[in-house]
Design a binder for these strands. Structure first.
Ligand SMILES: [Mn+2]
Ligand SMILES: [Mn+2]
Ligand SMILES: [Zn+2]
Ligand SMILES: [Zn+2]
Lengths: 140, 140
DNA sequence: CCCTAAATAAGAATCATTATCTTTGAAGAA
DNA sequence: TTCTTCAAAGATAATGATTCTTATTTAGGG
């Protein structure tokens, strides 16, 4: 996981720094689409002096280089995702909980549909479902 | 349109004020999922003294009362939608352009799929597609 | 081991949004 | 129609996530 990350950084010509590794690692470990603040909190134990600005800058550059994705929300706090594979999101209607939803069968249906039904004046690159509702279990 | 809005306000026990009407009207007319700033800009001609705080407060309360919807984005600037019917969004991969995509056939397919394939530990309330790609026409 | 461009740290600045507090006015009652 | 009142609007300060600036550090190639 971390090895993959180091390789990817080098591939993109980005230096492998402890900060970048720690931030990426935090997002993988936290798993549930954390904010910059969540990341800072998480890595504080091992990196007590990391600069807030650094976290934001690293997050930005990792998104820029396709090592992380931003998650769309209706809040003005950004959230990040280390899962790059094609997947959808379950949004809690009442809290900020967001979880991944992977479904190859669904992806196939949607791809078929849009291949058969082109959208006028629009070339589709990516389709994600935002599935809003209520979780019936407690946070994992 | 505006009549519908006035009735809805009364129904919810909210006063019909010129500001509320102007803000709602702006979002309908602008149509492309404007920000608070866009709304202020738009209504400035007829409401030169409207307070910024009022615009934010009105937007919030209209969302709260289901007269507007927030649009999920990966920016920390909120955007609003007066279209309440079930519809999806086309997001430009390179700009902030967002357009509506309505497709009853697609909605049926998705509903069927999720009725047949329940998600574990999750009760679905609403499903929207975020369709990212490139517009091949100029802004309407 | 050195050098240098790239990255980080620290802290100030920005800016969308929220909060506070006073004034206004919509709308029901009289 | 006028009166009354409470919700709503206006003005402006505060907040807080994010961005910027500048000095300092460091990854990594030579
Ligand atoms: Mn912001
Ligand atoms: Mn904010
Ligand atoms: Zn995800
Ligand atoms: Zn819309």
């Amino acid at each position: 996981m971390i090895t993959f990350f180091r390789e990817k950084l080098q591939e993109k010509g980005l230096k492998v720094t402890p900060q970048r590794v720690a931030i990426y690692d935090a997002i993988v470990k936290l798993n549930n689409h954390p904010t910059a603040e969540n990341v800072i909190e998480y890595i504080k134990a091992n990196h007590p002096n990391i600069s807030v600005g650094t976290v934001y800058k690293v997050l930005d550059s990792l998104v820029e280089n396709n090592l992380l994705k931003k998650v769309k929300t209706e809040k003005d706090i950004m959230r990040y995702d280390a899962v790059l594979s094609n997947h959808h999101h379950l949004y809690c209607a009442e809290t900020d909980r967001i979880e991944d939803y992977e479904d190859e069968k669904l992806n196939a249906i949607i791809n078929d549909y849009f291949n058969a039904n082109l959208i006028k004046n629009f070339r589709v690159q990516d389709i994600k479902l935002q599935i809003t509702g209520k979780f019936t279990n407690t946070i994992k």
